[in-house]
Amino acid sequence: MSIRVMVVDDHPLWREAVERDLSDAGLDVVATAADGREAMARFPAARPDVVLLDLQIPEPDGVAVTAAIAEQSPETRVLILSASGEQTDVLAAVKAGATGYLVKSASREDLLDAVRRVAAGDPVFTPGLAGLVLGEFQRDTEQTPLTERETEVLKMVAKGLSYRQIADRLVVSHRTVQNHVQNTLRKLQMHNRVELTRYAIEHGLDEE
Results as ranks from 00 to 15, higher is better:
74 P>Q: 00
35 D>S: 07
103 V>Y: 08
20 R>H: 09
94 V>N: 07
196 L>W: 00
105 S>D: 10
8 V>K: 03
173 S>P: 13
164 R>A: 14
113 D>E: 15
201 I>P: 08
166 I>V: 15
108 R>P: 08
48 P>A: 13
161 L>Q: 14
4 R>P: 02
145 P>K: 13
119 A>I: 02
187 K>W: 06
178 Q>I: 08
202 E>S: 09
143 Q>G: 09
73 S>Y: 12
41 A>F: 13
93 A>V: 10
49 D>Q: 06
172 V>D: 05
182 Q>D: 09
118 V>L: 00
7 V>C: 14
197 T>G: 12
104 K>E: 00
58 P>L: 12
194 V>E: 03
110 D>N: 09
206 D>R: 10
162 S>A: 13
120 A>E: 02
107 S>N: 11
109 E>P: 04
148 E>T: 04
69 I>F: 05
149 R>N: 06
94 V>R: 04
200 A>E: 11
141 T>G: 14
145 P>I: 02
68 A>L: 07
132 L>H: 13
167 A>Y: 04
140 D>W: 06
81 L>S: 04
97 G>K: 12
30 V>I: 13
16 E>P: 06
59 E>A: 15
176 T>M: 03
146 L>V: 04
67 A>P: 02
125 F>T: 10
22 L>T: 06
153 V>F: 10
30 V>C: 15
178 Q>Y: 06
161 L>T: 10
82 S>W: 05
196 L>H: 04
63 V>P: 08
124 V>E: 11
53 L>D: 01
88 T>V: 11
141 T>S: 15
1 M>W: 03
34 A>Q: 11
31 A>E: 05
60 P>Y: 14
84 S>V: 01
106 A>F: 01
16 E>T: 09
72 Q>T: 12
182 Q>P: 01
133 V>A: 10
134 L>I: 11
196 L>M: 02
94 V>A: 02
143 Q>N: 15
57 I>V: 10
202 E>T: 03
97 G>W: 11
49 D>I: 00
62 G>W: 02
